Computed example of a mutant assay.
Amino acid sequence: MNNPTVQEYSTGSTKSTSLRLWNTLRQLPLGKQLFTTGVCFKAPYFGTIHPEITILEPARCEVRAPNRRGSRNHLGTFHAIASCNMAELAAGMMTDVTVPVTHRWIPVGMTVEYLAKAATDMRTVAAIDAIPAFGDDPVDLEVPVEVLTTDGTVAVRARITMRVARKKHD
């Protein structure tokens, strides 16, 4: 079986509920904020960084978060764990809209490099180059993530391993 393209994942019956909702809401005034609020309602810890999902499509997700007092460490810079929170949100949402609706996913590992201090608002990019074939056997999908300052400096680089497996039927 050939690997599906990003186009095949963004059309037709393979589209996830999250992606269908995103595509509807993002066109509305404050739609991106409303979508992100819903995600944070479902997974409340993500709300601690006050994120906004700005791009969501198969194989790519971008998230922004303000540099606010609650996200800073004792040095006054964006906290490393707040960056990890952004990375997991972006990787999780990217995975959610990338895997077929017949499959489920869960993060099973994360490696992180702290590369630079960050005293600005942050932008996180989770993206994969190609969508693998998802079949009957579980797949470990490695999702590279970068957390960047407003000038484009990579402050944090992460790799999040997502275990993707076919949903079990009851």
Results as ranks from 00 to 15, higher is better:
Tyr9Asn: 09
Asn73Glu: 06
Ala118His: 03
Thr95His: 10
Cys61Thr: 02
Asn67Gly: 15
Val39Gln: 08
Pro66Lys: 06
Arg68Glu: 11
Glu57Val: 02
Thr149Met: 03
Ser10Gln: 13
Pro100Gly: 06
Ile49Asp: 03
Val164Phe: 14
Val97Arg: 10
His50Ile: 02
Val147Lys: 03
Met162Val: 14
Lys42Glu: 03
Ala165Arg: 15
Glu88Arg: 11
Asp170Thr: 10
Leu28Ser: 00
Leu141Lys: 15
Thr54Arg: 11
Ala43Glu: 01
Val97Ile: 14
Tyr9Gly: 04
Thr95Val: 08
Tyr114Gly: 02
Gly109Pro: 08
Ala59His: 12
Arg123Met: 07
Lys32Cys: 00
Glu57Ser: 10
Lys117Cys: 07
Val101Leu: 07
Val125Ala: 00
Arg123Ala: 01
Pro44Gln: 09
Cys84Trp: 10
Val99Thr: 09
Ala133His: 09
Ala158Met: 08
Cys40Gly: 00
Phe41Asn: 12
Arg123Glu: 05
Ala87Trp: 04
Arg69Cys: 07
Leu30Ile: 01
Thr48Pro: 03
Val156Ser: 14
Ile53Leu: 06
Val6Gly: 01
His103Ala: 11
Thr124Phe: 08
Ala133Glu: 13
Thr149Cys: 08
His50Pro: 01
Val99Gln: 09
Val156Asn: 12
Asp151Phe: 00
Pro29Lys: 02
Gly152Lys: 09
Arg157Asp: 03
Ala158Glu: 06
Thr5Pro: 14
Gln33Asn: 08
Arg163His: 14
Ala90Thr: 02
Pro107Gly: 12
Ile160Phe: 01
Lys42Thr: 06
Val101Gly: 08
Cys40Gln: 01
Thr37Ser: 15
Arg104Asp: 14
Pro132Phe: 10
Ala155Thr: 10
Gly38Glu: 06
Arg26His: 04
Val145Asn: 02
Pro44Ile: 07
Pro51Tyr: 06
Thr24Phe: 03
Pro144Tyr: 07
Tyr45Asn: 02
Pro29His: 05
Ala91Ile: 13
Ala158Phe: 02
Pro51Gly: 04
Asp129Thr: 11
Ser71Phe: 11
Arg68Asp: 10
Asp121Trp: 03
Leu89Met: 13
Arg69Tyr: 15
Ala91Thr: 12
His169Pro: 07
Thr37Ile: 01
Pro29Tyr: 02
Asp140Trp: 11
Tyr9Trp: 10
Val112Leu: 09
Arg166Lys: 09
Asn23Ile: 01
Ala158Leu: 11
Val145Gln: 08
Ile53Gly: 11
Gly152Thr: 03
Thr98Pro: 10
Arg20Cys: 07
Thr5Cys: 15
Lys15Ser: 13
Phe46Val: 00
Asp170Lys: 12
Ala130Gln: 13
Cys84Asn: 07
Thr24Glu: 00
Val139Met: 12
His79Ser: 12
Val143Asp: 09
Thr161Ile: 14
Leu34Ile: 03
Gly38Phe: 00
Trp22Val: 10
Ile131Gly: 15
Ile128Asn: 13
Gln33Phe: 06
Leu25Ser: 01
Val63Asp: 04
Ile131Ser: 15
Val154Tyr: 08
Arg26Leu: 01
Pro132Glu: 11
Lys15Asp: 05
Ala127Trp: 14
Arg166Leu: 15
Asp129Cys: 06
Val147Met: 05
Met1Ile: 06
Ser71Gln: 10
Cys40Ile: 00
Cys84Gln: 05
Pro144Val: 08
